[in-house]
Every structure is written in C-alpha cells, then in structure tokens.
Simulated assay, not measured.
Amino acid sequence: MKSLKLIFSDPRYFAPAWVFASLNIWFGTWAIYIPTVKDKLDIDKADLGIAIFCLSLGVFAIFPLASKIINKLGVGKATWLGVVLSSITALFPLLVPNYYLLMVSLFLFGISNGLTDISMNTLVTEIEKEDKQNFMSAAHGFFSLGGVIVGLGSFLIPIIGNPALHMGVTVAIIFLINLLVCKNYKNIVSAPVDKEPFSLKLFKPLFLLGIIGFMAMGSEGAIVDWSGLYLKEVTLAPEVLIGSGFLAFSTAMTLGRFLGDGISARIGSIKIVALGSLIAILGYLLVLSEETILAIIGFALNGLGFSVIVPELFRIGGNVKGVDSAQGVSFIAGTGYTGFLLGPVILGFLAETASLKLSFILLLGCTILVLLTTFVLKRNT
C-alpha cells in the first residue's frame, strides 16, 4: 500500500495515475451505452462488431507511431495530448447520426486511447527511473478504479436520460481534473538512452515479454467475456451468482494492483510475474473443478495473479538496455492488446467447436507457459 499512499500524498504521482483512471472512465462510459447506440442506429450485432473492431483498429494504428510522437514531444506533453484527444473523441460515438460515422468516430477514439495508453505507461516508467519509486502497479490499479467509477456512474443513466449529456458531463469533470494536475508531468521527458542497432540480443527479451503479455492479457480478456457463461453452463451456478466470477476477478485485480508495487520492490519484477502466474494457475485449477463456489474463488485468484503481471511487463519493457522506454512500452502494449482482443475470439471458437471447459484448460496451459517463460527471461536478464 506504500505506492497508494505515495499517489495520494504527492501530485507528481497522482497526476499520471489519474490519467490511468481517466482512460477507463472514457472507455467504460462509452461501453455502457453500446446497446443504446445499437438501437439508435438500428444496426445488428454483426455491424456492431465491425464498428467495435474499428476502435481496435485505431488502437493498433497508433502503436507504430506512438514512440516517435513521445520522443518528439516529450513523454509528458504526449500524455497531455492523449488526454486532450481522448476527451474530444470520447464524445463522437454518442453524437453520430449514422453507422458509417460511428465507425470513423470509434477509429479516432481508438487512436486517442492508444496514444494515451502508451504515453502514460512510458511516463510512469520514466518517473520510476528518475525518482527510484515503484508505483506502476498502483497506477494500473487506478485504471481498474476507473471501471468502478463507471459502474457507480451507471446508476445515473435513468436520471440523466441522455447518453451524449452523460458522456459530456463525464468528459468535462475528468478533463478539468486532468487540467488542474497536468502541470506535474507535462514537462517530463524520457531520459536519453544509448540505443543499440537492432539485433537478436535486443529482440529476445522483448519477444519473451511479448509472449507473456499476449498470454496474460489474452487470459484477462477471456475471463471478462466468458466467466459468466462458464459459471452458467459448466458449474450450473444459480442465476444470482452468474456475475460473481467477474466481480471476484475485478475486485481481486484492483486489490492486487494496489499491493503489487511493494511486493515487486522486495522480490523483483521477474519473480513477481512468476508468482502471479503461479497464483493464476491455482485459480484455473479451482475453476476447472466445476464447483460453483470453488470456481468463483478461482476467478478471484486469477484476478489477483494477473493483476501484477501486466504492470510489471510495462516496467520491464521500459527498462530494456539499449531500447528507449517508449519503444519498449509500445511493443508490450501491441502484443498484449493483440492477446486481449484475439483471446476471447479464439476461446469462443474453441468453445463452440469443442467445449467451454476445454477453452479454460487452454488458458491454464497458456498460464503455465507464462511461468516457464519467466525462467528463460530470468536467464537472459
């Protein structure tokens, strides 16, 4: 909890952490109105899926350019640019009058979110290196906290009764807070790095980190999308408990991220990734027991285990010798988000052609692979 106290006691740390929360608040507020937008534009699920894919396409489109933007503007100004662009483009999807403009607006929203994501992770990496303080995991905890804020804000839907107004008020409040605190990071620039020419020696640790990111974020995405159906169809959970797996997963993930920095400072980044994967493996074993209560506890352990893995990957990726932090973070983000987006799709196909339980056995296998990869990564550090 030391890093959490650090964030709340010093605006230098609160300011970037608030960007993490802001990103999930913008995205989450849009997400809760997806059914409303679908009905408003009179589109089917397939059309909606294509539109949402445009958002992902925007995120991936900015990945190759993000490090160049960060290095040209400075990581602080790039983060602020991401905040401004995300604040503007968050409004578009709820204002567009037709389906084609929805696709364009989501693509622009994705670009803005992608730039903000990479910039804020690079920003925290640079502050950690400069101040010798660990708060990356707690900053990701603020991202999870943003989702909680969105959930509480959803109770205002029947009171406000207007999606665009809801988003407008949300954007205004979030932007105002960012405007007040951005002075604490706007002038931060990445420390110069003696970059080395591309070689397999440099690529190997990044490749190993990419494997872990793909597997870990793929598992996160799969649990978010499939935990409810697993409890319903495999463990035959009563209806009142169907959402409990996701709730347990999200709560444990938020808690784990607030605790992760202190543990990381004691045992190191690679060891905490190994520990997180061990906890997640135990979680999957409980999930595969097919007992409802054990499965819910298993999803909680999954959340606790995965909570510390992704923040540590960004921390390690931003400190690879011979690679500037923006490039390292961009690589981790790209491979991780690929897993987050493709994981649920692959699992869905497997569940349809074989069984949902087999899908979760595959997730267990992927997490074991993450654990094994940490041993290889340790040897190459």
Results as ranks from 00 to 15, higher is better:
Met103Ala: 13
Val96Gly: 04
Leu95Val: 13
Asn113Gly: 12
Ser86Ala: 14
Phe92Arg: 04
Lys77Met: 13
Leu102Cys: 01
Gly82Met: 10
Leu73Met: 12
Phe92Met: 08
Ser112Gln: 05
Pro93Lys: 15
Leu91Gly: 09
Thr89Lys: 03
Leu102Gly: 02
Leu73Lys: 06
Leu91Met: 15
Ala78Lys: 00
Leu106His: 08
Met103Tyr: 02
Lys77Asn: 12
Tyr100Lys: 10
Ser87Arg: 09
Leu94Cys: 11
Thr89Trp: 04
Phe109Asn: 01
Ser105Thr: 00
Trp80Asn: 13
Phe109Ala: 11
Leu106Glu: 08
Ser112Lys: 02
Gly114Lys: 00
Leu91Gln: 12
Tyr100Gly: 13
Thr89Ala: 02
Thr89Phe: 08
Leu91His: 05
Leu95Asn: 11
Met103Glu: 08
Met103Phe: 01
Val104Ala: 14
Ser86Gly: 06
Val104Ser: 13
Pro93His: 14
Phe92Trp: 06
Thr79Cys: 09
Ala90Asp: 07
Trp80Ser: 12
Leu73Asn: 07
Val84Gln: 10
Tyr99Asp: 12
Val104Leu: 15
Ile88Ser: 05
Leu95Phe: 12
Lys77Tyr: 02
Trp80Gly: 09
Leu85Asn: 03
Gly82Val: 13
Asn113Glu: 13
Ser112Ala: 15
Ile88Val: 15
Leu108Asn: 07
Ile88Arg: 00
Leu94His: 11
Ser112Thr: 02
Gly114Gln: 06
Ser87Asn: 10
Pro97His: 07
Asn98Ser: 07
Val83Ser: 11
Ile111Ala: 10
Tyr99Ile: 15
Lys77Cys: 12
Asn98Tyr: 01
Pro97Ile: 08
Leu81Asp: 03
Phe109Gly: 09
Leu91Glu: 07
Gly74Leu: 04
Gly76Tyr: 04
Ala90Ile: 09
Ser105Ile: 06
Asn113Arg: 09
Gly114Leu: 09
Gly114Met: 08
Phe109Ser: 09
Ser105Gly: 06
Gly110Phe: 11
Asn113Leu: 14
Leu108Trp: 03
Ile111Gly: 11
Leu101Pro: 06
Thr89Gln: 00
Leu106Ile: 09
Leu85Phe: 11
Ile111His: 03
Asn113Cys: 12
Leu94Trp: 09
Gly76His: 05
Leu81Lys: 03
Ser86Gln: 05
Leu101Trp: 13
Leu81Phe: 02
Met103Lys: 07
Trp80Phe: 14
Ala90Leu: 10
Ser87Lys: 10
Lys77Phe: 06
Gly114Thr: 00
Thr79Met: 04
Ser105Asp: 06
Leu106Thr: 07
Pro93Gly: 13
Val83Gln: 11
Pro93Thr: 13
Val96Asn: 03
Pro97Cys: 05
Val84Met: 15
Val104Arg: 11
Pro93Met: 14
Ser86His: 05
Ile111Trp: 06
Thr89His: 02
Gly110Tyr: 12
Thr79Tyr: 00
Ile88Glu: 02
Leu81Ile: 02
Tyr99Gly: 14
Val96His: 03
Val75Phe: 01
Phe109Pro: 01
Ser87Glu: 10
Leu106Asn: 08
Asn98Met: 07
Leu91Asp: 07
Leu73Trp: 03
Leu73Ile: 01
Ser112Val: 03
Val75Ile: 04
Val104Gln: 08
Gly74Cys: 06
Ala90Phe: 05
Leu73Val: 01
Val75Tyr: 00
Tyr100Ala: 12
Gly114Ile: 04
Leu95Trp: 10
Leu101Val: 14
Gly82Ile: 13
Leu81Cys: 02
Ser105Met: 04
